[in-house]
Each structure stands twice: as structure tokens, then as C-alpha cells.
């Protein structure tokens, strides 16, 4: 099963490599990885999506918790949560395809953020499933390039991942 694990990490040199190294060292799988500073300059928030059965996920969270640079973590998929990812897609936009791209983007509530006579750059936000669906819809028209941020997430309601 797919899990989304969010981690508060010490904002220290080398901290990220410890997390990433752990996954390869222990033969765990990383599907997406997203990391950025938080409102607290001493902490980064890292979100990783991974796939594994309960035993593997238990080992992943235990080993992550053992890392000295990991301050706190949560498996978001254990409760209600919001999952978002941002994607930028360059598509061929020539002739009739120009309208088709625009229409499809509208259906997905995506925005066209850059335009040339032959190319549209589309920005879309959503969960990973929505982004995959958009790629599928655009594929016949001609995708030139895709840039995804990797999944970020947060728990719904009052639940917090803070110190």
C-alpha cells in the first residue's frame, strides 16, 4: 500500500542525505520526495511517498525515527489528510490542439502559465491521481516535458505535526 510520511527534520547539512541514504541502505522504496524549510528556520519538512506492506512501513517509520536528525514524523495515510502535488507540463500547442489543450486544462482546473506560438506550459495542482489523469489526457496531444514537485501533505482537522 502507498503511504505518505511527513517528517520534521533538523535543518542541518547532511540531514537529507541521512534520510535518503536510509531508504537505499535498507532497500526501502521512495516514490516521491519533497523537502523545503518550514516557518521555523531550524526545521525542514520532508514528505516522502513510499509503497510497502504494514511490516515494511513499520520498519521505515521506526528507522526514520532512529535518525538523530529526524525530530518528528507522521504517516499521513493513517488518518484523513490532504495530499497535493504541483506539476508543470509543456505541451505542443499547434492548430486545433491549441484549443484542445486549453479545454482540457479548464476541465482539470489547470492554468496556462506560459505561452509561445507552438507551446503551452500548463500548471496543475492536485493529488497524484489527478496529475496522472492529466498526463493521460494530454498524451495524445503531445507532451514535451513534465516537472512534478512530488507529493506534499497535511492532516485534516486539528491534528498537527509540530514540536
Amino acid at each position: 500500500m502507498r503511504h505518505i510520511i511527513s517528517i520534521l527534520l533538523e535543518n542541518e547539512p547532511g540531514a537529507l542525505s541521512r534520510v535518503v541514504g536510509l531508504f537505499s541502505q535498507r532497500n526501502f522504496n521512495i516514490e516521491t520526495l519533497n523537502v523545503a524549510p518550514t516557518e521555523d528556520p531550524s526545521l525542514s519538512r520532508l514528505t516522502v511517498t513510499t509503497v510497502g506492506d504494514d511490516r515494511v512501513i513499520e520498519q521505515i517509520t521506526k528507522h526514520l525515527n532512529k535518525l538523530i536528525d529526524v525530530v518528528k514524523l507522521v504517516d499521513l495515510t493513517e488518518g484523513n489528510h490532504i495530499e497535493r502535488e504541483l506539476m508543470l507540463v509543456k505541451v505542443k500547442a499547434l492548430g486545433a490542439a491549441r484549443d484542445e489543450v486549453k479545454r482540457t486544462a479548464d476541465i482539470f482546473r489547470a492554468q496556462i502559465v506560459d505561452v509561445t506560438p507552438s507551446v503551452y506550459t500548463v500548471q496543475i495542482t492536485g493529488d497524484a491521481g489527478k496529475l496522472d489523469a492529466f498526463i493521460q489526457a494530454m498524451a495524445p496531444i503531445g507532451i514535451l516535458e513534465v516537472a512534478r514537485t512530488g507529493v506534499s501533505g497535511i492532516a485534516r482537522g486539528d491534528k498537527l505535526l509540530t514540536l
Partner: peptide, 8 residues
């Protein structure tokens, strides 16, 4: 003492 050793 190490939770990751349990059920590994």
C-alpha cells in the same frame, strides 16, 4: 531498547 529491532 531499539524499537526498530522489534518485529524486524
Amino acid at each position: 531498547i531499539d524499537p526498530s529491532s522489534i518485529s524486524k
